[in-house]
């Protein structure tokens, strides 16, 4: 039964955090712990840290995430198409082709507008 397979994933989830957590905790127990203010400073190549880390980022990253999101949704919609493809006719190829080419048009637009440039 399907749910039984997922019960395995659930069990794996419950277990999987132990593998990385155990060495980290053992490390905390057996390693020396002598923090000093200098040691706990932020490491930026020996130069003292200036200003806030959590600064404003370029709009470029946001655009990239957006283009990715669009493609992600597209690919997710293509999965059922791909799975059923063997049982479908030529019309399915046309439907998928139109779907993909419409999106490619968006990519061409992003390309022309320079949203894909990384400067």
């Amino acid at each position: 039964m399907e749910l039984n397979e997922w019960a395995f994933i659930g069990a794996f989830f419950m277990l999987s955090w132990i593998f990385p957590a155990a060495p980290v905790i053992i490390n905390k127990l057996i390693a020396p712990n002598r923090p000093t203010p200098i040691k706990r400073e932020t490491y930026e190549c020996g130069v003292e840290t200036v200003g806030d880390t959590w600064v404003q980022f370029k709009v470029q990253y946001y655009l990239l995430a957006l283009v990715f999101l669009v493609f992600d949704v597209e690919m997710v919609l293509l999965f059922p198409w791909a799975v059923a493809y063997n049982e479908l006719g030529m019309f399915a190829f046309l439907a998928g082709g139109v779907f993909i080419l419409l999106l490619l048009e968006g990519l061409v637009y992003a390309w022309r507008k320079g949203a894909l440039e990384w400067t």
């Binding site: 053992i26 905390k28 390693a31 040691k39 706990r40």
Partner: peptide, 18 residues
Amino acid sequence: LMTKEAITPANADKVVFF
């Protein structure tokens, strides 16, 4: 690595860092 001190920076967001 097991015997190395695990340093958490003073300014770190400790829970997220862990």
